[in-house]
Nucleic acid binder design. Structure first.
Length: 889
DNA sequence: GTAACTACTTAGAAGCACATTA
DNA sequence: TAATGTGCTTCTAAGTAGTTAC
């Protein structure tokens, strides 16, 4: 668990976007009841009472009195208990702006991730922006930065002035828009309409008629024809090349074909083997038993399996979690009722259960597995591969496609995130009777690998799933789909990015409109505009309604009263748990009108637990967005802003830098996007110790530097004055460290001498020569010890005699090199610190248009494999094919 | 109009394999 | 060679958003 991190560097992208000019805003502190407010404009909370009453009476005649789409969340249950803890430090006694309080980090026990980013002052624009022309900046970045954005200035200068004039100005248009780059190979998917099956058939008219089965190794077949004893090696190479070429040909380049429309039909023929069920439970050895109150229990396999699920987790955080334990124990007791222990012991308390014997058994098994020989491991792997082979691929319209999650989820304990009320609940073992499969009409119905019959077999060619079931914990649907690298996923991925690019053409108008609507007399419109402002500027998720039996997390539309607090003149503090219970904690400077609106939405009768946007739902918001641009939804803004930010940040790449430097710039850009999207990861448990080691390494370098420096001063004492920077003590290099370091060095030197002695003797023995006497070793060890005594003296006197052949010139050169090494190590340490809780992968996989990466790699001559892993390259072949050096998002 | 259902994308954790270090 | 660290892959939870039923 980590504490809140220092905000400024984390927020390089997000925060500058929203900072306005506080000085100008101060004179325009909004009032809850301003004169330009119509009846509709009045604080909603005052109306909600009326509305609630009307809803009960069924009167919904006026616009305002229509039933609210969302039910106010009833505050109860465990989720609210947690909320109360959070609230305790962010509570507001009234709806008005409060004196800024530094929100405390939510403890992990509350389900919140630790990272928080707090902004108090406008920070300068991120370094990375320095070489961007103002014209080049997307609105999201320009609104504030140093607080001088035109839009902000205007907004703050007068409430009555519309912000829209500014936001629609030409210089706020994204660069790409001005350049208007066409989607290179073909028109956008959204606008194309064709019969998918037909177009696919065009693509693969005669799909693999001869070598239909990719399972037949191509090389093998060829070998028979071409190989001869004489030229075996070249042939093997040639065959490999041929195979690669053929594989290349085999690949379905869907991006070269006509785009598929949003048509219903996804396939004509569809063959697969559905899911692979895990092996049945194997009971533990007879001597491995859980204990209850000190008594070993002999459990039937059914209950032993469940005990084992918990037993395997006893050293994880889950097992210490009260809710997790409660839910597990409830289910465990139920299964014990049905399958009681032989000893007829009544299990009444989880605290009296001792799963350690089970845990230790699992650990031993892991060790055994680890200790297996290479061949044993290989044999196991081969058996596994053989078992899984039939499930790896399916055939779609004659084409071989990779299946994604073909393994039926094994039974276990539900690992809900955050404060999920069901965490710890037993996930049942799936049987064929639970699973519906979707397959071509003429395809052979797969036989499950365990006894049983499918729950159903359907032939719906408008969907892409192979199998589907309902899990028992939350009643959610689970699906088996094709892999991320499949043509279906690739097509929808590309369509997603094309839609985000399409937004570039509309975003000015949308921003202009919502800026105007921020002042709308119609409250629903004003709320919608404010929500959209946050979605656009803060990359918030839409925020669908959630049920009571889920973790209490929110997105933009579902924000509640307690999730935002106001700090005059224009700061809005967000503190809520988003998807996966990740904490979103930011102080954001907003336009005056937005500040005013939030104050209005929180006014009077509204209280904790009430929706901030009580007249807005994701459906309403998306309907509105769809009217602005076909197919536009809230989530497109995240994709657009992420890709846009990334492309912009990449402009900071050093043109003449090394590949490593360029990659560092790439990763920095990636990090900015990850921060924008609030993608977090938990800090590794070993982080602190690994950081300590790293710091010691740096200190060790400084130690070496010190020795060089002292030698130099012995040679030329004048340098102490001439080059005072050399005389400065290496920071954090205290006596305690030096002593410890020298002791470590001594130990190492002695150890090495010992090893060398032994090694030499082995060699001498092998060569039939006389071994060295032990006295020789002892002498050497004594020498080493004496040398180190010298070090101690040097440390005390702070004087080091120049080593043999040391010259002033050489020493200065060595010090210079040492300085470089220290600087590099420090940068590395800083990078690790910055990335310790930021997850880069999610944005790379889902939000950043891969063509930006491909273009960048080509432009800066960086091998793509250094940026995309194997799986990512498999996921984005279309990007590699489409993007050239000049491609722009 | 709303809740429930459906199909899909997005997400961090956990597990695993490979690289580096001692 | 074993221990440790790191990055990649897999797993599955948790979102979004459209459709359907009432």
């Amino acid at each position: 668990m980590s504490g809140p991190t220092s905000a400024p560097d984390k927020m390089a992208v997000v925060a500058p976007n929203l900072q306005s000019t506080p000085t100008t805003l101060a004179t325009h502190a909004p009032h809850v009841e301003d004169e330009d407010m119509s009846e509709d404009d009045k604080p909603l909370a005052r109306k909600t009472h009326r509305l609630a009453k009307k809803r009960i009476t069924g009167d919904s005649s006026s616009e305002d009195d229509k039933p609210l789409a969302k039910k106010p969340r009833v505050s109860n249950g465990a989720a609210n208990k947690k909320r109360r803890v959070v609230d305790s430090d962010s509570d507001e006694s009234d709806a008005g702006p409060s004196v800024k309080k530094e929100p405390e980090p939510t403890p992990k026990s509350n389900g919140a991730k630790p990272r928080s980013s707090t902004f108090k002052k406008p920070s300068p624009p991120s370094e990375s922006d320095s070489d961007l022309s103002e014209d080049d900046k997307p609105l999201a970045r320009k609104v504030n930065g140093n607080g001088n954005s035109k839009a902000t200035k205007k907004a703050t200068s007068s409430d009555s002035e519309s912000l829209s004039e500014e936001s629609s100005s030409e210089d706020e248009k994204p660069l790409a828009k001005k350049k208007a780059p066409p989607a290179k190979p073909r028109q956008s998917t959204a606008s194309t309409k064709s019969t998918p099956a037909a177009s696919k058939k065009k693509v693969k008219a005669e799909p693999k008629s001869e070598s239909e089965d990719d399972d037949v190794p191509l090389a093998k077949g060829k070998t028979k024809v071409t190989s001869s004893a004489k030229d075996k090696k070249p042939v093997v190479k040639r065959e490999k090349k041929v195979k690669e070429e053929e594989d290349e040909e085999e690949k379905y380049k869907w991006w070269e074909q006509e785009a598929l429309g949003d048509g219903e039909v996804k396939w004509t023929t569809f063959e697969h083997n559905a899911v692979l069920f895990p092996p049945p439970y194997v009971p533990l050895p007879k001597n491995v038993k859980m204990k209850y109150d000190g008594v070993a229990l002999t459990l039937p396999p059914e209950s032993e399996e469940v005990a084992g699920f918990f037993g395997a987790m006893i050293e994880t955080d889950h097992a210490a979690d009260a809710k997790f334990r409660e839910n597990f124990f409830k289910d465990f007791k139920a299964i014990l009722e049905k399958y009681p222990p032989k000893e007829s012991v009544k299990v009444k308390s989880l605290d009296k259960c001792d799963f350690k014997p089970m845990f230790e058994h699992f650990e031993r098994e892991k060790e055994k597995k680890k200790a297996m020989t290479r061949d044993e491991k290989k044999a196991i792997k081969e058996a596994k591969d053989k078992l899984e082979a039939p499930y790896l691929f399916c055939t779609v319209d004659g084409r071989k496609e990779k299946v994604g999650n073909f393994r039926a989820e094994p039974p276990g304990l539900f690992r809900g995130r955050g404060e999920h009320p069901k965490k710890g609940t037993l996930k049942h073992r799936l049987r064929p009777e639970d699973i519906i499969i979707n397959i071509g009409k003429d395809a052979k119905e797969p036989i499950p690998n365990i006894p049983g019959k499918w729950k159903g077999v359907q032939h719906d060619n408008t969907v892409t799933w192979l199998a589907h079931w309902k899990e028992n914990v939350n009643g959610n649907a689970k699906y088996v789909f094709l892999s991320a690298g499949s043509s279906w996923k690739g097509q929808s991925d590309r369509a997603k990015f094309e839609k985000a690019r399409e937004l570039i053409k509309h975003v000015d108008k949308i921003r202009k409109d919502y800026t105007e609507d921020l002042k709308s007399k119609v409250m629903a419109d004003r709320q919608r505009a404010t929500a959209l402002y946050f979605i656009d500027r803060l990359a918030l998720r839409a925020g669908n309604e959630k049920g009571e039996d889920e973790a209490d997390t929110v997105g933009c539309c579902s924000l509640r009263y307690e999730h935002v607090t106001l700090q005059p003149p224009n700061t809005v503090s967000f503190d809520f748990l988003g998807k996966d219970s990740m904490r979103f904690h930011q102080d954001v400077q907003v336009d005056a009108q937005v500040f005013k609106n939030i104050k209005l939405f929180k006014a009077e009768a509204k209280k904790k637990g009430d929706d901030l946007f009580d007249r807005l739902t994701t459906t309403l918001l998306n309907k509105h967005l769809n009217s602005m641009m076909p197919g536009l939804t809230a989530k497109v803004f995240r994709t657009y802003n992420a890709s846009w930010t990334f492309q912009k940040q990449l402009k900071n790449t050093p043109k003449n830098g090394t590949v490593a430097e360029k990659i560092a710039a790439y990763n920095t850009a990636n990090r900015e996007v990850a921060i924008l999207c609030n993608h977090q990861k938990s800090v590794s448990k070993t982080y602190e110790s690994s950081k300590g080691k790293h710091e010691d390494k740096i200190r060790a370098l400084k130690y070496q530097r010190m020795k060089l420096r002292l030698q130099l001063f012995s040679l030329n004492p004048k340098l102490k004055k001439k080059q005072p920077e050399l005389a400065e003590d290496e920071s954090d290099l205290d006596d305690e460290f030096c002593e410890r370091h020298e002791a470590e060095l001594l130990e190492k030197a002695l150890d090495n001498a010992q090893k060398k002695f032994e090694k030499d003797n082995v060699k001498l023995e092998e060569e039939g020569e006389k071994k060295k006497d032990k006295s020789e070793l002892n002498e050497r060890l004594k020498e080493i010890k004496d040398e180190f005594k010298e070090l101690k003296k040097e440390r005390k006197s702070k004087k080091v005699e120049p080593r043999r052949a040391a010259t002033e010139e050489k020493l200065l050169e060595q010090i210079g090199k040492m300085d470089e090494r220290i600087a590099t190590a420090k940068v590395q340490l800083g990078d690790r610190e910055k990335l310790k809780d930021v997850a880069l992968g999610t944005s790379k996989i889902n939000y950043i248009d891969p063509r930006i990466t491909v273009t960048w790699a080509k432009k800066y001559d960086v091998p793509l494999e250094k940026l995309f892993s194997k799986t990512l390259r498999e996921k984005f072949p279309w990007a590699e094919a489409e993007a050239d050096k000049s491609w722009v998002f």
